[in-house]
Design a protein around this nucleic acid. Structure first.
Lengths: 199, 199, 199, 199
DNA sequence: ACACTCGGGACTGCCCGTTAAT
DNA sequence: ATTAACGGGCAGTCCCGAGTGT
């Protein structure tokens, strides 16, 4: 269903509106009525493109991930302006978990209703995509000699993705907290951890 | 509001029923109507004890965590029947993330609506509790000499909690998946990782 | 669910409004929104009393049947002003099938969605009630000597109910028809038929 | 609109699919989407042949009736293998009311929305067709001397059709019932009744 | 203080039909 | 003559508060 619409104007409008509303009000508060009102589309029109609110959000999810991956590839190609692929990787991964990024909000939103048919598929799709992306990044690093070739790229990528999930959850939980003792594990810690493993 | 009811019969019935229904149907599908029907209580009666569905679930959450921590303490006291405190720690942490445990379901459920007033507090409460528990476990290990005293117990505990969050999310996402290449990171990997860090 | 509300004011208002709206616009066009608007009640209020639109209509159905039966009993008690119990019976039965009576509209409406859970029960309930009413009428006639005691009251009552159903359907089908050749079977034919059987 | 398509392939596919889906899921649950999906036709294509769901179902109705009448004519021609035209008539009429036959489901479905424009016409059409069929059957019986020539064929046919309607409704209501006391009026009773009247 | 009935408002999913484009 | 796109409408579900009685 998602195929073929990619270039459609209203379809893109739908996705963009969803992103904006989610960023503004969160997933749960982004109702179909708001989307209808903002886009000017009717309920039937929306249901012509997506078959549920969840699918819409899932589509937003993948599109965002795609964008992040693209920006990573571009960053690598431009090279040099980053302190090396390693930093790019760290940056790519952390981008996936910024406290209240749309991506994470959607993941949690979907996770909370994975009993609904179809939702699990969306989530697995995302995980697979994220894991392979991380894998390709590490692999690229190994070819270029910046990452120890002995490390199991597969396991390491899974490990990093999981860490990123963990940071996401923790950050969501601690957002707006005192931040005092909470700030004990941050981006740089994540970066160091990675270095330790990839040397 | 939660104080003073702890010993009340109907209050306990409420919690137990909630646990059972969540385990059976998941958080989202556990509606107030079902709880009403199962307990025989009326809507108003329930709201007399808890002021929202979220609070109820939060109460369930902490009660469950309490139970897990107790069982950990007991396990340590009995000692010997486990291969050492380290294994007990790993066990304690993994218990917090078994695929579809009630605890994790509730966490995700709450996380998905942390914009609601009060929910964030519940989550922070949980995180703090989990982190301090992990900290106390590591600390205990260091005193007994099984864990390298040089490691920063604070950071390590945060790290482990995050890893446990990550595994939780990944497992929820991949549940019912082909499990073929998915089984690349499991309990033993977690255990090894811990050993590496704590030596 | 219907028990206990019988005396409630809003509940009665609900039923009465339903009857009126059905009589005016038909079952299908009587939407919940109209009911809400007319009664001034909210959706939640309505669903507090009935658990579906069908149940509401079913409740209307039985209440109407009850009313008809009552009016029959009263007619018999007053006696004399009718040409005898027989005519009263004929009148009672025909009242159940006046072309566009609310009763028949509801029956058809429910019949058209008897696949929905609970609807079948409502219909059986109605049929049973109607059949036993007819039976009691015939029985009463036999005791008073106006009806041949040899006839099987059970069978005859079923027969009459079925005939009444048939007339209902036919009349609904032919309503607004030319009425020319269509008027070949009417109330008096029904009356004669009954006489023939009951002598 | 229905004229001219009779021989068309996709048109026939449409009808057949409708019959099958109705037989499987009932009228109400046979949605346009299902028909689209099963036939592979698009919404526009379907609406090119019929101008509403009701018309489609009406078309199915008449086609089915036609088929029944044909089978009756064939049965009469073969003669002898039946105990006489009378039995054939009874058989023909009862075939029109088998509990959950597609025919009756459609009739009820249409009856429930006879307020819609055009639906009444479809129903009258059906009734007329059924009544004249019954009339011709009785007439045929009188010419062959098996039916008392004194009976008013017109009235009798109307009577029988109505009885058949009544049985249809009753059977639909009582389907899946205890069948204990319900089984008081069945096919043979119907047959006897006919004999009584036609002698 | 405690318990509950009664009522309110919001939202999702679904479905049928029509219009513009080809 | 076939399709994609779109428009509205409706039922059912849910969580919750306001008012009532005890």
């Amino acid at each position: 269903m998602m195929v073929g619409f990619t270039g459609n104007a209203t379809y893109r409008q739908l996705l963009e509106t969803a992103v904006r509303l989610i960023a503004e009000h969160g997933c749960r508060n982004t109702t179909l009525q708001q989307i209808m009102q903002t886009t000017g589309l009717s309920k039937g029109a929306i249901y012509h493109y997506v078959k549920s609110k969840e699918e819409l959000f899932g589509l937003v999810l993948t599109s965002q991930v795609e964008a992040i991956n693209d920006s990573f590839q571009r960053a690598v190609e431009e090279q040099g302006n980053l302190t090396g692929p390693l930093a790019a990787i760290a940056d790519g991964l952390t981008k996936l978990q910024e406290k209240d990024s749309v991506v994470n909000q959607i993941i949690i939103y979907l996770l909370a209703q994975k009993d609904k048919s179809g939702v699990t598929a969306l989530l697995q799709q995302y995980h697979e995509r994220a894991a392979t992306a991380a894998f390709s990044w590490i692999d690229m690093g190994q070819r270029e000699g910046v990452i120890n070739p002995k490390v199991d790229a597969r396991k390491a990528s899974e490990h990093f993705v999981m860490l990123s999930y963990g940071m996401c959850m923790r950050n969501m939980m601690m957002s707006e907290a005192g931040e005092s003792s909470a700030r004990s594990f941050e981006k740089e810690d994540f970066y160091n951890l990675m270095l330790q493993h990839l040397k």
